[in-house]
């Protein structure tokens, strides 16, 4: 049982580490995605994914990042 718990802990640690900016909680990760608003047009969006040139999948108005093609997946 102890071994299983150790493996579980390791797997969870891996899970959080591999999530990158998607779910790791830093102050900057609290910055909302403002893509689609008037402010974003002139200020830009500071959402962590947008700053990494990635699309925020939670905001359908996000135009950051490049389009992914099926063959890329």
């Amino acid at each position: 049982m102890r071994t299983s718990l150790l493996i579980l802990a390791a797997a969870l640690a891996f899970a959080f580490a591999s999530c990158g900016s998607n779910c790791c909680k830093t102050e900057e990760s609290n910055v909302p995605c403002i893509c689609g608003t008037d402010e974003a047009l002139i200020d830009g969006c500071a959402h962590p994914l947008c700053l990494q040139d990635k699309r925020n999948p939670d905001n359908p108005d996000c135009v950051c990042g490049t389009m992914t093609f099926e063959e890329d997946k």
Binding site: S4, L5, I7, L8, A11, L12, F14, A15, F16, S18, C19, G20, N22, C23, P57, D58, P60
Partner: peptide, 18 residues
């Protein structure tokens, strides 16, 4: 248990929308 943890890992990181 570890299998569930790995599933959780994948779910945490999967994009929410297409």
């Amino acid at each position: 248990v570890p299998a569930l943890a790995l599933v959780a890992a994948v779910l945490f990181c999967a994009p929410a929308h297409a």
